[in-house]
C-alpha cells in the first residue's frame, strides 16, 4: 500500500495552440500516495501548464496520464472535470475564493460538485457546514469572525487558509497547489505550510506544490526541477522570458 502510485505520467508532450515548439516534453513522472512533491522552475517554464494537464483541463498532444489508476485519454472532458472535482483539490496563488460566497460556503462548495466528497464528509460529520467550520477552526481561523466579513475583506493569509480548507474538504486524494505562498509574508509562509502539511498528513493526501522559491523545498519529501525532467526546455523560448 505504501508505494501505491497516485500519478503516473509518461512520454507527455504538450504544446499550446499556435506555438511552434512543444512547451512540455516529459518522459516520466511518478508520484506515490502521500508524497509531498515540490515542483520548481523559472517563470514561464510551464509549471502551471503541467498542473492544468494533471487536472485534466488541458489536453496533451500525446503521452499517458494516469491518475489514481484512471487513464485520462479514456475519459471525456466532462468526465475528467468530474474526476477532478471528486479526487483533487486546488489552491492558487491569489483570489482563490468566490467573492459572493461566505467563507463557509466557499469551503462547502466542492461537496456540491462532488457526491464522493460530500459522502466522505458526511461519514464523519453531521453536516457539510459543520465540517467546513471544523476545518476552518483547525486552520486557526475564527468562524465567528469570518461570518461577519466578506471573503474579499480577509487578509491574504486568511484567504489562503480558507482556500486550503476548501481544498482539503471531502478529503481528495491529491491536492495541487500553485504558488500558494508567494503572496504571503515570509513569517506566515512557514505556519501556512505547516498547517497544509498537517492536513495532508492526516488524510494521506498527496501534495503537488509548485513554487519558484527553492528554499521551501527542504520541507518536502521530494524536490523536482521542471527544467530537469522537461526535455522541451532546450528551445529558446525560456531565455526570452528571462531577458
Amino acid at each position: 500500500m505504501a508505494n501505491q502510485i497516485v500519478l503516473h505520467i509518461s512520454d507527455l508532450v504538450f504544446s499550446w495552440p499556435r506555438s511552434t515548439a512543444p512547451l512540455l516534453n516529459i518522459d516520466l513522472l511518478s508520484v506515490a500516495k502521500g508524497e509531498k512533491i515540490f515542483l520548481h522552475g523559472p517563470s514561464g517554464s510551464g509549471k502551471s501548464t503541467l498542473l492544468n494537464v494533471i487536472g485534466g483541463v488541458l489536453e496533451p498532444e500525446r503521452g499517458k496520464i494516469e491518475v489514481l489508476g484512471k487513464n485520462f485519454s479514456e475519459l471525456t472532458s466532462s468526465r475528467k472535470d468530474q474526476f477532478r472535482g471528486d479526487h483533487m483539490g486546488f489552491i492558487f496563488q491569489m483570489f482563490n475564493l468566490l467573492p459572493y460566497f461566505s467563507a463557509v460556503e466557499n469551503v462547502v462548495l466542492p461537496c456540491e460538485f462532488s457526491k464522493i466528497k460530500s459522502k466522505r464528509v458526511l461519514e464523519h460529520a453531521t453536516s457539510l457546514e459543520e465540517e467546513a467550520k471544523r476545518l476552518l477552526t483547525e486552520l486557526r481561523l475564527s468562524v465567528e469572525d469570518l461570518s461577519h466579513k466578506n471573503v474579499t475583506k480577509l487578509s491574504v493569509g486568511q484567504q489562503q487558509r480558507v482556500a486550503t480548507a476548501r481544498a482539503v474538504m471531502g478529503r481528495p486524494e491529491i491536492i495541487i497547489a500553485d504558488e500558494p505562498t508567494s503572496a504571503l509574508d515570509s513569517n506566515i509562509r512557514e505556519s501556512f505550510l505547516k498547517l497544509l502539511f498537517e492536513e495532508c498528513h492526516k488524510f494521506e493526501i498527496t501534495l503537488i506544490f509548485v513554487s519558484h522559491d527553492i528554499s521551501l523545498g527542504t520541507k518536502f519529501d521530494r524536490v523536482i526541477s521542471l527544467c530537469e525532467i522537461n526535455k522541451a526546455n532546450m528551445s529558446g523560448q525560456m531565455e526570452r522570458e528571462f531577458i
Binding site: Q82, G85, F92, L98
Partner: peptide, 15 residues
C-alpha cells in the same frame, strides 16, 4: 474570469 476558473478547479464542467 477568475470566478469561472475557480469553479472549474472545483469540478465545474465547461457547460
Amino acid at each position: 474570469r477568475r470566478e469561472m476558473a475557480i469553479l472549474r478547479s472545483i469540478g465545474a464542467k465547461k457547460r
